[in-house]
Amino acid sequence: MHGPGDTRFFDWFAPLYDLVMPSAEAGRLATALDRASRPVERVVDIGGGSGRATLALDVPERVVFDLSAGMLARARRRGLDCVRGDARALPFADDSVDAVTVVDAFHHMPGQRTVVEEVYRVLAPGGVFAVREFNPETIRGRGLVLAERAIGFGSTFATPRDLTELLDGAGFDADVLDTGFEYTVVAKKRESH
């Protein structure tokens, strides 16, 4: 394990990250955010790293939230607002965020149930939590699981069904938007909670 959420590796890898990772799919993120039943003006991208997914969000206020100082330095150079911290203790007020995203990073977060509970707390009613993640049930996904274990990551991959059940269990209404090597789950916070 490289540290909480594999942080030390990403501090080291930050200069190369954007060279090897594809850009985020803006269309899939937009589709997920469209599921909100409130205007989406403030989005927090947890595990947002270098800001590659945050840049794809077309909203007035975008915040990159990550534990890796190296990755956040890259996001700041892109002109993005950044907050450093652990997703198990989000430093945002209750019901203060319209949407939360996590792209290709949820599997690196320890205490995933706690992360989900924190996201639920900070989301305003009618807001959405959009998760773009790798599917460990696919051939490429199984390969990624093995590769991350081989280099010592403490990753916990969830299938689309497992993630949906986790989100529903926390009080969200969750749906799988698409599947494949990567999949998208969007979870809406009920308007009366």
Rank of each mutant, 00 (worst) to 15 (best):
P125S: 15
G51V: 01
G111N: 04
Q112A: 10
V20G: 04
P22F: 13
R113L: 14
E165A: 15
P22C: 13
A130P: 08
R52V: 01
F106V: 12
E182V: 03
T164F: 05
D81A: 15
G85S: 11
S50C: 11
D173H: 08
A75Q: 01
D18F: 08
F106Q: 05
L177V: 10
R8Y: 11
P60C: 11
R84I: 12
F129S: 00
D94N: 10
S192Q: 14
T184E: 11
D34M: 15
M1T: 08
A26W: 09
L55K: 09
P125Y: 14
P39K: 10
G47Y: 07
V116I: 14
S192T: 12
A32N: 05
D162P: 00
S96V: 03
W12D: 08
Q112D: 10
E165F: 06
V83D: 02
S96C: 09
A105K: 09
R88E: 07
P15Y: 15
V43G: 00
G79H: 04
G171C: 03
Y183M: 01
D94Y: 06
L29R: 06
R84D: 12
R132G: 08
D66W: 03
D34N: 15
V83I: 05
L146P: 10
S37G: 11
L90Y: 13
V115I: 15
L29H: 06
V131D: 06
L72H: 05
V128H: 04
L163M: 15
A69E: 10
D168H: 14
V119D: 04
Q112S: 09
A93N: 07
F129Q: 02
V40Q: 03
D6A: 15
D178E: 15
A147S: 15
S155Y: 00
F134G: 04
D175S: 13
F10N: 01
D18I: 08
G79A: 03
F65Q: 03
L146S: 15
F172E: 13
P22I: 10
Y183H: 01
T138K: 02
R190K: 09
G154K: 00
D66K: 01
R62H: 05
W12T: 13
V122C: 09
Y17T: 01
G111T: 02
V43W: 02
E191N: 10
L16F: 13
T184D: 13
D11G: 10
A36I: 00
D18Y: 08
D175H: 13
E117G: 07
D6Q: 07
P160E: 12
M21G: 07
V44I: 13
A73W: 13
L16C: 09
P110W: 03
F13Y: 09
D173V: 07
S37K: 12
R149D: 14
A56L: 07
H107T: 07
D95M: 05
L123W: 09
G27T: 07
V97P: 02
G48S: 05
L146W: 15
R77N: 15
G143C: 11
T31W: 12
T101K: 00
E148K: 13
L144P: 00
D6P: 05
D178C: 12
V40H: 00
R28Y: 14
